[in-house]
Design a protein around this nucleic acid. Structure first.
Lengths: 248, 248
DNA sequence: AAGTATCGTTCTATTATTTCGAACAGAAAT
DNA sequence: ATTTCTGTTCGAAATAATAGAACGATACTT
């Protein structure tokens, strides 16, 4: 019910979305707040160290303080702390990019990424989101979610490439297959040139709370190579699960 | 001059500092705001998705949204984007932990870290700060700062271990040595069991804006080993500088 | 070069929002 | 059973946030 705090965050989010520093007028157009109001709000954010103003262009941009505060939140995440060494070792043995993701409604959120030392890297930075039904980590988690949630997600399927799962039955079958094998595969369903495999991570209560995945460019990841990776990824997934207290 | 926005950020920072979810009463003690006022502010933060409340304990905690927004800011940093592949390759060849830092007043801020695949890891997470004068990356950057800034920093020297630089002349000599060699060494000046080497990174204008470093446990990093690493780190530093447009 | 449009900032009055304390119910501790 | 903690709700009061006009300064147009 607060308007001022909400307005402040609308500004922050507008600044976070924009790739260039924004002028007050830019922000007026985006937010439809008054010019003087935005000036007032930005002053408050500047005083708190979250925003700075380019002296020459008078445009405003976010400082790293937001990121600093954010890393504190992440640093407290038990999951990430416990999983980190397993991810490092997985990255070391596979030489491909490794990531850790959680499920937030219909999207995966990438918590951690260890870049491959190989020259060509697939681009998926930490803190980004992607639709769950067309990524390997997302499918690995969806496979263990209640049927009702799957039905909801199936209703919002959109094709991103010609390999994207295209309807509810296809998705259900895919998820059943994942449960049988214990790992998921993505052959260019989100970005056509990116492939990957992933395995679920369970907590002490047996709930699937995350997934670990390996991905890379299609030309380096043949079907055979993916099969090999699947074994390693699956083992990493269960190792992390056990470290989290999962009995299995 | 805003009170409401400032209060909101004071709450966010209090929550970010605390390792456990906080009750309203906890926050009353910390901030000296009114109970009902905190309730109001937290509701606003909750509505915007930055805070959640544990249903059972009624305690409040920060969600990952703050981190998500923060990663956007970091993702736009040209320095980090350009440096990343060089850091990855440095990590690969040295097998020790690699990091990228910038200087903020008297502190270093760690922008990026690539963990060593080795079992024993030195602990310095991304987004953290450390005093510049007793870390290798910090000293590498200080060596190229104006004398006035060095004098100010020398005034706030505090010993953290028995190897920490202890006075102004010692610091000045150390920085001169660093300028001559083009790299800096830290032998347990911050945490006694952590050693490292670092080299400065210059931008197109020739200003030192960052530093790249390698560090690890003292028992693995002998004086000889540090000398070897220094060569590689120095090369990485100049490669990144050149990628940023530095003519040298 | 002159003129016009757009920009960020400052100011003040008005209003709507935040703030506070009291009162409440529920949980925990005594 | 009683006391002392909680978190939450409410309404009145205080004040902080808001809007609009006016100001130079800068950037465009002609």
């Amino acid at each position: 019910m607060s308007t001022t705090i909400t307005k402040a965050f609308i500004l922050i989010e507008a600044l976070a979305e924009s790739h260039e520093p924004q002028s007050i007028s830019d922000l007026v157009r985006r937010t439809e707040f008054t010019k003087s109001n935005i000036h007032f709000l930005l002053s408050a954010l500047r005083e708190n160290g979250y925003v700075e103003q380019d002296a020459a262009t008078r445009r405003y941009f976010l400082t790293l303080k937001l990121w600093e505060m954010g890393t504190r939140v992440l640093g407290r995440l038990e999951l990430r702390r416990i999983a980190s060494p397993y991810l490092a070792s997985l990255a070391d043995t596979t030489s491909e990019t490794v990531n850790l993701a959680i499920l937030d409604h219909h999207e995966v959120l990438y918590l951690h990424k260890i870049d491959s030392p190989m020259p060509v890297q697939a681009y998926t930075p930490e803190g980004q989101r992607a639709p769950a039904y067309c990524t390997s980590t997302g499918k690995a988690m969806l496979a263990y979610q209640p049927a009702e949630q799957i039905r909801q997600i199936a209703r919002m399927i959109e094709r991103h490439t010609d390999r994207t799962v295209s309807n509810a039955t296809e998705l259900t079958n895919e998820l059943r297959k994942i449960r049988n094998r214990g790992y998921s595969v993505n052959r260019g369903e989100w970005r056509s040139s990116v492939r990957g495999v992933a395995a679920p991570i369970m907590n002490g209560a047996g709930e699937v709370i995350a997934a670990v995945g390996v991905f890379g460019p299609a030309e380096r990841l043949s079907a055979r190579k993916l099969d090999q990776l699947a074994i390693t990824v699956k083992i990493t997934g269960s190792s992390i699960s056990r470290a989290l207290g999962y009995p299995g």
